[in-house]
């Protein structure tokens, strides 16, 4: 199924949770912030949120800045 991650359309396996996707991308869920269809997903809910076709997901983290 297709979803949008950080502005790019991607093919992902059906039934993945947000936590699965974060781990699959080699990311540490403890430092990632997620916004799904414009709603912030609390970190505690990463494992409970299942991704659906057409979802638009933003994954962010802190980088160097002034």
């Amino acid at each position: 199924m297709r979803i949008t991650v950080n502005g790019e359309t991607e093919e992902i396996t059906e039934g993945l949770t947000l936590l699965d996707l974060i781990r699959e991308r080699g990311l540490n869920p403890d430092i990632v912030v997620a916004e799904l269809n414009r709603d912030i997903v609390a970190r505690d809910n990463f494992a409970a949120v299942r991704l659906n076709p057409g979802d638009s997901l933003e994954l962010l983290h802190f980088v160097g800045g002034g």
């Binding site: 990632v32 933003e58 980088v63």
Partner: peptide
């Protein structure tokens, strides 16, 4: 201070 940006794979 830190900034917030989209995270790439890895």
């Amino acid at each position: 201070t830190v900034a917030m940006r989209r995270v790439d794979r890895g």
